[in-house]
């Protein structure tokens, strides 16, 4: 495949071909993951048993009817194909608990999770750049040690535990922020429903920002250190450019490209970390619902969420790869 050598090439035909190829590659991955999840879920147990545990008096005829209604009496390959053909028509099926169509709920969950994640990722990225750059420009100084230990703490901290501590301090003790949910049910925080939403966002976003901030700072610092040592920075210094220009327009641009690739992995970490944060803050997003649905073996809900999260992760990786090519034209695609 041809190398993308400039910005014009970025939008050129090879790029379009590459994107299409990557999108086609996603299909086997998606089908593989869906089969894997489907089989494991069925190996995990029978949801009818949970009904039996909850209502010991229920008779067999009712259970049979429930099984027939949800198609649970069919052999597993047939159930999978039914699910697949439904999902291709955009139908995620009905939740086994309450019978509500997953389609109606999943949009809400998705929106809540995306809201939480986008705000945290963007905030973390914006904040981490100046801190990481500062740390790399004065390596092994006192400030640098403070910054690196601050970020190492963030990497070493269990996400959910930080959430617990923030709840104990800022919610239970000080009473500044709500401890759970995305909207006030009993009382409206800070007087207005818009402020109320913001009040609910503060603590979970703080947790997610700190965790990904820590990772970003470490990456930017490491990459900047490497770039600042290179010969072209020396050349730029020798030609008398201002330190500011060297740092921000020469070094940072080159240091940020590898950071972006790792952002793909960091994204994965956030998607994985979000369920923890959502669980602690009882946030009505995909992650918390997933955890609850897994405990209850709610197949349609779990399958739907796994599919959505996988697509999100795959697309995020693709976008990250494209940004990488854009920032570093030496990278070949194909």
């Amino acid at each position: 495949m041809s190398a993308v050598s400039n910005v014009k090439g970025f939008f050129g035909s090879s790029m379009v071909k590459y994107v299409i190829k990557r999108l086609i590659y996603m299909l086997p991955v998606l089908i593989g993951i869906s089969i894997l999840t489907f089989i494991t879920l069925h190996a995990a147990g029978d949801p009818l048993n949970i009904i039996r545990l909850g209502r010991p008096t229920v008779d067999q005829a009712t259970l049979d009817a429930v099984a027939a209604y949800y198609g649970l009496d069919q052999p597993i390959p047939i159930q999978y194909l039914t699910w697949l053909s439904n999902i291709l028509r955009g139908d995620f099926g009905n939740s086994l608990f309450g019978g509500i169509p997953v389609n109606l709920l999943i949009g809400n969950w998705f929106w809540e999770t995306v809201k939480l994640m986008t705000i945290s990722i963007v905030l973390a990225f914006i904040i981490s750049i100046p801190i990481g750059v500062y740390s790399a420009r004065k390596p092994y100084s006192k400030t640098d040690y403070a910054i690196t230990s601050f970020s190492l703490f963030g990497v070493s901290m269990p996400t959910f535990w930080l959430g617990l501590i923030l709840i104990i301090v800022f919610s239970f003790t000080l009473g500044w922020f709500p401890s759970e949910g995305s909207t006030g049910v009993i009382k409206v925080w800070w007087g207005h429903y818009v402020f109320d939403k913001i009040a609910h966002l503060v603590l979970p976003v703080a947790v997610l920002v700190y965790v990904s901030l820590a990772q970003n700072i470490r990456l930017i610092r490491a990459n900047m250190l490497e770039v600042l040592r290179s010969d072209y920075i020396l050349a730029a210094r020798a030609s008398g450019l201002s330190e500011r220009k060297i740092t921000y327009s020469y070094a940072l641009r080159n240091a940020i490209a590898p950071t972006i690739t790792f952002l793909g992995i960091a994204l994965g970490a956030i998607i994985a970390g979000a369920p923890m944060t959502e669980y602690v803050f009882n946030w009505p997003g995909l992650g918390r619902t997933y955890v609850n649905a897994t405990t209850r073996l709610d197949f349609p809900v779990v399958m739907g969420i796994v599919m959505i999260i996988t697509v999100m992760a795959l697309l995020a990786n693709l976008i990250v790869d494209l940004i990488y090519v854009y920032l570093d034209p030496r990278v070949r695609i194909g």
Partner: peptide, 11 residues
């Protein structure tokens, strides 16, 4: 690498 490991680990 891509798929959300935590979700699978739980199941």
């Amino acid at each position: 690498l891509v798929f959300p490991a935590l979700l699978f680990i739980l199941v």
